[in-house]
Write a protein that binds this DNA or RNA. Structure first.
Lengths: 334, 334
DNA sequence: ACATTAAATGTAAGCGCTTACATTTATAGC
DNA sequence: GCTATAAATGTAAGCGCTTACATTTAATGT
């Protein structure tokens, strides 16, 4: 691999000049710029980005930590992010945190030790305090889907309470009154917020919240399955089931069908997230849209502007959910 | 950020010694090793990986190019890969190629210019010749899901012909004789191989292949939808439909249902890939398992062994598909 | 006690770039 | 034609590490 030195020799100029044309410095005459460019192509020269990073103290890389690399939720998020970065010449280094405090922390440290200029973090297990301490460090980061009041300006979140409200409102308006709910793990803020929205809608419509109709899941498919089974066994009847995310809704659908229920006739089911496969389950799942792709892009923007002084300042950090009506909720004529 | 220099000063040793303890060089007395370690923790020292890379000419990063970051197929692949690498201290830089020759090439060049030590490529559009030329270059790479005879030793692939055969065999054994087929784009080797397997099974069972029952899709959902519509309009009848991947099968299911067909009673549908959501569509899709996660790990192994001399040599590069029976194929009692 | 050898440590030259500063060359004003 | 100023180019000192080689120190044999 040719180095800048060989280019300078071939072009008959100094190292500095070659560096200048590489960095589009204005102080180079057209003639020499031409000479240098020629020499570069002749040698098939490519700048060594490592050396550049060392000299400039900027690695042009941003770290992205997500819980899982697979799964319907993270894909679109990473897509939005990679896209924004690549055409700015930044690259993204990925790591998975597996919703586990230790591994999340390892991931973050790994990314930092990799000299990332900035971090985009989708972490669930690590504590607020840890993150606050991290924010005192030299590596800037944004948080996706997590609100820490002390770090509010770097949190890009969804209005989960509103989403929870929207979901329940829709179910209520279709005439359902006996509504079961499978939540996420309630130590996670988003799970809590969604449930809060649910309760709010209930009370606004003069329905009271029934503890025996609540099952706490873990956002994974199987807990939706288990949740339905448990709810179904209990004595309290319900005509609709709201799940705090789509995977659990899917699990619940499978369980319901196994229990002989006709869907959606005998049970209406509601999801949350609007993950791509919700269109494909049967019946197509009514759900709440989570604009994760856009939020990913916004996170990328944040980094681009705060770390690299490129692009516009991110304008909003609070995104709004939307109801997506499909066919898993039927009207209940009472 | 503390540098090696400050550590050496605090510990009262030379730079070289500090470097030695960092790299676990045996020629350091326990006493000084202790001193240095102490100084490091006291200063909160972290080696600058950029500087290390420059000095060693090894970036400890491997580039991963996939068609899309989202989608059910790539997630598990990336998962397998990231996992293998991280606990070896390597990091993965991702880029998306979007099944488009130009963007794939850009992605590869981007990754190379980023000084990746090795590349894992899932490319579809770029030519064999380009890849062969690339293989003469200094950056080693493995190919995932693509066979180039001249580069066979670095191709990790699935026996797609066999998979195609298995799919059709199963359908035939359930008694179906009139079988429609929605293929992938036939310029792609995998699409071609799957179709070849289909034809082979057909002929082995004394059934002939009917051109009018073939529709060429593009592996995306909508082409399954369109494909079914076109096939359905034509005069030739069929009791089963085999799709060259799960997304198209899903699209076809939707179309079939829209045409008033009862699934699976009036039409059996077969997928390919065993993407995670196939369990969730209705009826659950019978399909062919593509062990993409394992193949990703194998690719990672390849890099680990060839580039970093770590881990065992990858043993096999040809993976075998397997039939996954669910409920989308019914027995045809003729 | 001394030479011989091995182990531990230090010295200094890179790795391929950027950039402040110095120097040279061109441009303009008189 | 000569100075004042701006533009173009060059010089050289880093950036934070690694590593070949040189040097010092400790261990061993006699």
């Amino acid at each position: 691999m040719a180095t800048i030195y060989e280019v300078s020799k071939l072009a008959g100029v100094s190292l500095a000049t070659v560096s200048r044309v590489m960095n589009n410095n204005k102080n180079v005459s057209d003639a020499t710029r031409e000479k240098v460019t020629l020499a570069m192509t002749e040698l098939g020269y490519r700048p060594n980005s490592i050396a550049q990073s060392l000299a400039t103290n900027c690695s042009n890389s941003v770290g992205l930590l997500v819980s899982e690399l697979h799964g319907p939720f993270y894909g679109p998020m990473m897509s939005g992010i990679e896209n924004s970065f690549r055409n700015q010449g930044k690259h993204v280094i990925i790591a998975a945190g597996h919703s586990n405090a230790e591994r999340e922390q390892q991931g973050i440290e790994f990314l930092i030790s990799r000299n990332c200029d900035g971090l985009i973090l989708h972490v669930e297990a690590v504590s607020d305090d840890y993150l606050i301490a991290l924010s005192k460090g030299p590596t800037p980061f944004v948080l996706l889907n997590r609100l820490i009041p002390a770090l509010a300006d770097r949190c890009i979140i969804l209005n989960n309470r509103k989403g929870g409200y929207l979901a329940t409102q829709h179910v209520l308006e279709q005439g359902h009154r006996d509504i079961a709910y499978i939540s996420g793990p309630l130590w996670k803020a988003d799970a809590k917020d969604r449930l809060a929205g649910h309760k709010l809608a209930l009370s606004e419509y003069g329905s009271r919240f029934d503890e025996s109709l609540l099952y706490q899941g873990d956002f994974m498919e199987d807990s939706g399955y288990q949740g339905f089974l448990q709810l179904h066994r209990s004595t309290t009847q319900f005509s609709a089931l709201i799940c705090a995310n789509d995977e659990m809704a899917t699990g619940a659908m499978i369980a319901a069908r196994e229990c002989g229920l006709q869907l959606p006739e005998q049970l209406s089911i509601m999801g949350y997230d609007n993950v791509f496969f919700t269109r494909h389950v049967y019946p197509p799942l009514t759900t709440i849209n989570y604009p994760i792709n856009e939020m990913g892009q916004m996170a990328a923007n944040w980094i681009l502007s705060k770390v690299y002084n490129k692009g516009e300042q991110p304008t909003h950090t609070l995104f709004e959910p939307q109801l997506v009506v499909r066919q898993s909720i039927t009207k209940r004529s009472s």
